[in-house]
Design a protein around this nucleic acid. Sequence first.
DNA 1: TATTGTTATACTCTATAACTATA
DNA 2: TATAGTTATAGAGTATAACAATA
Lengths: 157, 157
Amino acid sequence: MMKPDTPQDTEDLTDDAVAGFIGYNLKRVLSLVMGDLAQVLGGFSLRAVSFSALGVVVRQPGISQSGLAEVLSVERSNLVQLLDELSSRGLVVRAPVAGDRRRYALMPTPEGLRLHADAAQAVAAHETRVFAMLDADEQATLLRLLRKVRADWPSAG
Amino acid sequence: MMKPDTPQDTEDLTDDAVAGFIGYNLKRVLSLVMGDLAQVLGGFSLRAVSFSALGVVVRQPGISQSGLAEVLSVERSNLVQLLDELSSRGLVVRAPVAGDRRRYALMPTPEGLRLHADAAQAVAAHETRVFAMLDADEQATLLRLLRKVRADWPSAG
DNA sequence: TATTGTTATACTCTATAACTATA
DNA sequence: TATAGTTATAGAGTATAACAATA
């Protein structure tokens, strides 16, 4: 059990080479946050994207699958199974739209509303917990800067 | 071509339901940033993780694959092919370590150093461009907050 | 012709388990 | 017994192309 005293000795273990890039830190932070969030939403048998989709349907009842896809930047095709599951669990329904038989109006069920309310509270608690190292101002600033990047992205984000 | 005047009319198209969560915005911003970065690094035939790995090897020559995996939070197994490619392209070498024939000391080649310098400059230009909507203070703040989240993560990030 | 929902598919990323050779 | 590198594989997540029904 003798450490080598050659090139890189006790291995400093830093990512200084890339830690100066915002993008790299975005990725590392997202990985940490998503790991915790998956645990939290797992308790509701939801994934992050399912929670987001359910939330949009709750907030904007009647939205179409195409509309939902655009809002969340998710491919329409990848929403089909997701909504199949939310539908089979009785959380949302695909209601027919009068005047356009191609599209569905996505509507939350009472149970969908209830589950979403509970999940949203849990997600809020999760954010409070994992961002506890930032004070209220810092959290607000982080949120504001991220939203500014999206809003002013050079081609609509 | 008549829009339905039923449930959700002209489809407001907002993600207000989730846009208040930091995690959601982290994901959306990362997606935008990575999309642009992939374009930039594609010009060097590098992926984001290859660029990071090369950068760490350049900054910490002699690091082992396990050390690199830990620094970048990448599974050891997933580094093998990545380093195979960097190695076959003559950008890094797996040098034997005197005293421990299990491990390799990863070393950049002169060409690896050159490519990394060029790529790092391109990545810096990419960040300048995609974060141009933030002034210098805001960029520094964003970086600082992200690094703080990682540093103070409840179990080492 | 264009749009909505759908199916099938492929490709990347990431995670896990097991193996080998060395320590 | 533990560690470094490796292999194989499986599971997400995401992207693309094509189709049927409808506009």
